[in-house]
Design a protein around this nucleic acid. Sequence first.
DNA 1: CTGTATCCTTAGGGATACTG
DNA 2: CAGTATCCCTAAGGATACAG
Lengths: 136, 136
Amino acid sequence: MKHKTRSSCPICFSLELFGDKWSLLILRDIILFDKKHYHEFMDSSEGISTNILADRLQKLECAGLIKKKQNEENQKKFIYAPTDEALDLLPLLIEMTLWGVKHNPEIDASQAPPEFIKKMIKDRKRFIKNIRIKFK
Amino acid sequence: MKHKTRSSCPICFSLELFGDKWSLLILRDIILFDKKHYHEFMDSSEGISTNILADRLQKLECAGLIKKKQNEENQKKFIYAPTDEALDLLPLLIEMTLWGVKHNPEIDASQAPPEFIKKMIKDRKRFIKNIRIKFK
DNA sequence: CTGTATCCTTAGGGATACTG
DNA sequence: CAGTATCCCTAAGGATACAG
């Protein structure tokens, strides 16, 4: 199942892999929020429905962005983890986060940003490195 | 016309403004490819249709990401330009470009990347600065 | 717990004709 | 040239029931 490419533009190529309504949020959950299990993605506040989640997990796996492994102890449990290609999206996720923080008028500038955002601002390289280490 | 927000996540917020099939490509055209006119967007190789383009231009304007001005000489000509908020997307566009270049298997690694990609790799800060100057 | 399988609705988008 | 206005269609997504 190859994806059709609208053009040779790298931005367009990227968008075709994770430029839909849900894929990047799942990647965010896996990479930034440490989520590993199906029910954890279901629990995200955006409220994805189960059929869509199953579909996106499969597509992301096909695209080589996530790996699915069985839990050793519990055969019924599956663990989702990011591939190296997905971890390469960290700078993109960071930029998108920073842009959102800066330009969302609903966010009260006086209120302190979440801890992980402070960390990614303070020392981005370290932030990325720590996450990479976690998934080694 | 306010946009509904699925969550308080900044990534989600960003995606709701330009996370569809076309918006970011239009922003790419305006910011990176120097396009200004309706017909130039129409000419992009992805082949957007005219009704969709009109719709996206309007939504991007509502979202405060582009400005529409009349051409002085020709009343019928309109010029589209990025706002400062849109120019703040430059790092994101760059990261997405780099990710796409790195992970698109169709791109022959032996073939040299386009000139503007070389520039954004070689000196990103300068690349961003030059574009910002252009739109001053 | 981790999904399938259905059913149904809607938004998004393509094609095309037309307009000042 | 820079769009509107329609029409139509499909893919995407929501709700829900159910299964191993």
